[in-house]
Design a protein around this nucleic acid. Structure first.
Lengths: 135, 135
DNA sequence: CAGCATCCCTCCGGATACTG
DNA sequence: CAGTATCCGGAGGGATGCTG
């Protein structure tokens, strides 16, 4: 048993949240994970980790995101301090999105998960197939 | 610009998915992230990374999860090959859940994000407060 | 170009009651 | 103890149309 993990649970109250009148924000994991939880968040983080992009460019990069969800997800990422939004008063106006320092820091961790997903994608698919086949 | 990340996008088609007739499973990030995306998945992974637990123990560890969601999330994690489910034919029966090798491997990456969340929770909350206050 | 507003619907997930 | 079954409200998210 990894003592670091036990310490993590004990010290940070990973599991305690809304019970006993506490707010969900008291649980760092749940609170911060909500940023990653969105259907598009990690995808947009990966895109902006590459380089800054404008609104329309992001739409083209992620063809099947609706403009509503793009707006909303970028807004949420901005609110969490991960994304910086810069408006250039050109005509027509253009808006550029980029990662903040906090965003880059967060993506450093998220990146590990993305790399893992790429490497082990096949294993996960096989596990699913086996599960669906035999039980 | 990090060439590794550019390579990631190009090579793995992070952003392409359901367009041009492809399945979402063609995008490793989206496909695997769905496991993490669940409201309870990462929490249960963290719990089981600590040690194997039985159904009722998990309920007590995560007081505000409904038994429906606990069943369903464990089922999904099992299907993805992250969690092993072992039934002991005792009376009354007991079921133990533990991480598989694949699950432990995945949690290695997820753990980075959890640690990040703990360390930077304050920064995220401050960013939100600032955003909500001034825009 | 970069969005906000509106409508609408799916499905996530909670509450409750019942089984092996 | 460890689940299934059913009902149901609300958030998530798509489609469309309009603005600065």
């Amino acid at each position: 048993m990894d003592s670091k993990i036990v310490n993590l649970r004990t010290k940070l109250n990973i599991f305690k949240a809304t019970s006993n009148g506490a707010n969900i924000a008291d649980c760092p994991v749940r609170d911060v994970m909500q940023g990653v939880n969105g259907k598009w968040s990690s995808l947009l983080m990966a895109a902006l980790a590459e380089q800054p992009y404008r609104f329309g460019e992001l739409r083209r990069l992620v063809p099947d995101i609706s403009q509503r969800m793009l707006t909303q997800t970028l807004h949420d990422l901005q609110r969490d301090g991960f994304v910086h939004r810069e408006v250039f008063p050109t005509k027509p106006p253009s808006v550029e999105y980029s990662l903040t320092d906090l965003g880059r820091s967060m993506f450093g961790a998220l990146h590990q998960l993305i790399l893992w997903a790429e490497i082990n994608h096949g294993a996960v698919r096989e596990a699913r197939a086996a599960f669906d086949a035999g039980g």
